[in-house]
């Protein structure tokens, strides 16, 4: 079997070129507590400096034999750059991700500063990407992600108000989504220039446990199509939760790959999307790395492969407090069980 570097393996997958085995990577956060502890810092500190962000991502990748690194880790960098106050829980000993305690009360009140890329921790993310590109970028794939327009809107406007306005006040929601769509297009290009090899658009607030498929078609899909049409680099659309009813629309979004979580019916999805579309998923980022037995891990990964994924990857952020043996077992089993071709990607 030919050996590829991690980067060749991941980028080959996106091109649908034959590769040696299934890559172990993610489009969501995959920073781990064992790695953080090695660096002698607490969890909240990983978000605060480019060095901590890059080092903890890199250490997690090396410790658990991932093919990629992914930054940033939290969903507040953009809202913070827009000027919203955030809680960093900087003195906490616990695993607490930053949150936004107060959002704009309605879409029309949102104001986006023209120089937001220079604000908050946006430069931290840029520098972390730069550091990773310099230090591991030759051999390892560097991933990054941005929230999709609706999910990002839900981060900056009170979500219940936003949801209700999709029915009563749609024009205002659409106007905000259009603005965010253009911003996301530019930010994706920006992250690409700063070092990202692939981008994951996380539009997780739009699954059918939240929005109707009709709403998805009308409000969400056109914006996704616009973004993916403009991004000329490897791109994934991730939606978690109940996605069975919108999976064909996800396929038609223009992404190279679609990513789902354990709530999706993989085998049915593969039938619906055909064999050419890349499908990533769908292990639970908490239960499998934290508490599954080796046998359960093997069974679950085999189930994903049998369900037709081209990469077994987590359906959400990996919960940082992993069982080290479990996460290593997951990645080694993915490589071992993923030696055969997947529906969209052959093997060398």
């Amino acid at each position: 079997m030919a050996r590829l570097t991690s980067k060749q393996r991941v980028l080959g997958l996106f091109r649908r070129d034959p590769i040696d085995t299934m890559p172990c990577f993610s489009g969501q956060g995959m920073v781990t507590l064992p790695a953080i502890h090695c660096l002698g810092i607490r969890f909240p500190q990983v978000h605060l400096t480019a060095e901590n962000m890059a080092e903890s991502a890199k250490k997690s990748m090396h410790m658990f034999e991932f093919d990629s690194v992914v930054v940033p880790f939290d969903m507040c960098t953009i809202p913070e750059a827009f000027g919203l106050p955030i809680s960093l829980y900087a003195n906490s000993e616990d695993i607490l991700y930053p949150t936004i305690p107060g959002k704009w009360p309605s879409p029309e009140e949102v104001t986006i500063p023209g120089d937001y890329l220079k604000m908050g921790r946006m430069p931290v993310v840029d520098k972390a990407l730069n550091l990773l590109r310099e230090e591991v970028g030759e051999d390892k794939a560097i991933g990054s992600w941005i929230l999709g327009p609706f999910t990002l809107a839900g981060q900056i406007v009170e979500l219940d108000i936003l949801m209700k306005m999709t029915i009563r006040g749609r024009a205002k929601v659409e106007s905000l989504l259009d603005e965010l769509t253009e911003l996301i297009i530019d930010l994706g290009r920006h992250y690409r220039l700063e070092g990202a090899d692939y981008m994951n658009l996380r539009e997780m607030g739009t699954g059918s446990d939240l929005l109707s498929p009709r709403m998805f078609k009308m409000l969400i899909l056109p914006r996704l199509q616009r973004i993916f049409d403009e991004w000329d680099f490897p791109k994934v659309l991730h939606i978690c939760g109940f996605t069975d009813l919108i999976i064909e629309m996800m396929r038609d979004s223009g992404a190279d790959a679609i990513s789902v979580d354990h709530n999706n019916t993989l085998a049915e999805t593969r039938k619906k999307i055909g064999d050419r579309m890349l499908l990533f998923g769908d292990y639970n980022g908490f239960t499998l790395p934290k508490k599954a037995t080796k046998e359960e891990i093997k069974e679950y990964i085999q189930g994903c492969i049998d369900g037709g994924v081209d990469a077994v990857w987590p359906g959400c952020d990996i919960w940082p407090e992993v069982n080290e043996e479990n996460l290593l077992t997951i990645n080694r089993k993915i490589r071992e069980l993923g030696r055969g071709p997947s529906p969209a990607v052959g093997r060398l």
């Binding site: 209700k164 029915i167 939240l210 929005l211 709403m215």
Partner: peptide, 14 residues
């Protein structure tokens, strides 16, 4: 029956 979703639930709640 997947005829109502969360936005509808929220409006019903109001």
């Amino acid at each position: 029956k997947h005829e109502y979703f969360v936005p509808e639930l929220l409006l019903c709640a109001d």
